[in-house]
Design a protein around this nucleic acid. Sequence first.
DNA 1: AATAGTATTGCAAACGTTTTCATAAATGGT
DNA 2: ACCATTTATGAAAACGTTTGCAATACTATT
Lengths: 345, 345
Amino acid sequence: MRKQPDKVDIVYVARLAGVSPATVSRAINHPDLVSPATRKRIDTAIRKSGYIRNRAAQAMHGKRSGTIGLIVPTMNYAIFAEVVQAFNDEISNHGFTVLLATHGYDLGSEYLVIRKLLEHRVDGVALVGLNHSQDSIGILGKQRVPSLTIWNYSADSPISCIGADNFEAGQLAAQHIVVLGHRRVGLVFPPTEGNDRARDRLNAARQTLFEAGVTIRDEWCGETPYSVSQSKKICTEILSLPRSERPTALLCGNDIIAQGAVYAALRLGVSVPQELSVVGIGDFAGSADMEPALTTVRIPARRIGTAAGRRLVKAITDADPDFILRERLDVELMMRATTAQPRQD
Amino acid sequence: MRKQPDKVDIVYVARLAGVSPATVSRAINHPDLVSPATRKRIDTAIRKSGYIRNRAAQAMHGKRSGTIGLIVPTMNYAIFAEVVQAFNDEISNHGFTVLLATHGYDLGSEYLVIRKLLEHRVDGVALVGLNHSQDSIGILGKQRVPSLTIWNYSADSPISCIGADNFEAGQLAAQHIVVLGHRRVGLVFPPTEGNDRARDRLNAARQTLFEAGVTIRDEWCGETPYSVSQSKKICTEILSLPRSERPTALLCGNDIIAQGAVYAALRLGVSVPQELSVVGIGDFAGSADMEPALTTVRIPARRIGTAAGRRLVKAITDADPDFILRERLDVELMMRATTAQPRQD
DNA sequence: AATAGTATTGCAAACGTTTTCATAAATGGT
DNA sequence: ACCATTTATGAAAACGTTTGCAATACTATT
């Protein structure tokens, strides 16, 4: 075994190859600028020494850090796992790495994690939703780092966004219920505080149902976090009303909640969809496969993640921090087995 | 509005506060070394200028980068979402940030992402499973970065590990089936190539069942990736056998597969657990809440993620790259509603 | 009031790379 | 064989921090 150098940096490699550090740097970053012969010597020197270039040092030169910050509310419940995966896949293909952070639906700590990512000199930032503190938006603008909100689309967003129109999603779900002929509908949603996705969906649902003259009684509605078990609990209460007092359909804020609703019904022996229709929003992995398969409005998570990654990479490589774009991806009603016309009696 | 400086770095802040850059640095990193008066001046200068310190520059000084690499096979299917979340929470509390990477169950690309993380000079690395290429282990050792494998425990692992004993998990699941009195058992597992978790579970199950004299017919067994729909498909085939030719129990490689099995049975009108028992491994979010609730072996994902984060941070702050520890977290059988004694006929 | 010690600050080198500029060598056209 | 390009390389400055060392200004002790 040759003696191990205590540190193997670019000058060590250079000495090994009998060239200057500058040439090594060029051989790595602009191979066409160095002669084939030396390039080869350098390559073997790199391999022999086990050299790994130091991106921190690169980044100091105003070169890119090669990282992109991704901030999601939470990784629990798998809601955002799919979009994270797609985003990661896309930017990895372009040589970037994800710097991940979560804030637990707290706008204040979102600001803090943004700062943390900026300390690492991320080349770009993606956030979830359109609801952010003034400080957060401000600091991103001031640092001039390309940023993008995902998941939600809004025509008048002050910052670039790629996502679905959650209002439309709520509308679609509600219309489906209305068209089927339901007149007694319950709404089960998460808290809308700091969650614009949920708020838009809920507003849309209320409005659509109201315009159709559909009854919404308070005792048919519930609020629950994104959790199958919590949703199951609250829906069990709703469905425990005597048959004639029950809603014939439950419109849920997302698929997790809808799954809880279906399980609650199954548990109580309320047949789905004969006695109760359930519709979700999201179309998470698993919703199509459950039994009965969940009717829901598809939010194209993968496509959102991929598109967001692509646009952010483009903004970075074009060196255009002021880019602004708003891309709206279509939502789609997935009619499956948990909805039907209300029983006539 | 005051004129915006084109770049606000530590020397800009220093000038603003009327001190030297060195003092600013100290005010940030060793506040006790600078007098209260100047500290205050510097603080306001920092706030006024909107200074954000550059960790890339810090990292160049041999200081830590403040990032920890986390490499998971995939973020799909939410399998690893929980452990990622717990890990992230833990290290965030200590000022570190997660640098995330995935390799899609491919050992070769795992090596590549390890290299990529090392270029970013991560202060530590966590990987999933014990199955890694020689190159991967080698480069981590050579770079002397604290590393840790999670999810899997093995007494003779060459590298530190924190996790559950997957062999034990398989045993527990199989024993449960045996004790209930099943004699006709099918196994539905993912491909074991490059997935030591699955391999250990499968080996344990086979061995335990064999020792109990339980029949395993090839036509009762299936291989499927981690996907509810794929699992549902293959289980539908198995369960379509005439009643007398069917297994009375299905032991599944993880909860995703088990969910598919349950849905397949529901679909075909095979009642669970009366006609068919199903047991999973993992206890993912949702398994407890589905209807019927899934009997499974709990792998404590949250605790694994938290423990891994804690130990890695400790190894980093103690500057002990050669630390080696093996921590085994207990698995536990969660008896719920998908298993019962086989029907006597 | 002189001394020793301590608290506070600044200077300058160092970290590992990239890039500009300059130089030297090679090439090509006459 | 000479000059004008072009190609290949190196020297050195720069990036934004941290830190060892030295210098200065205090404080307490005699």
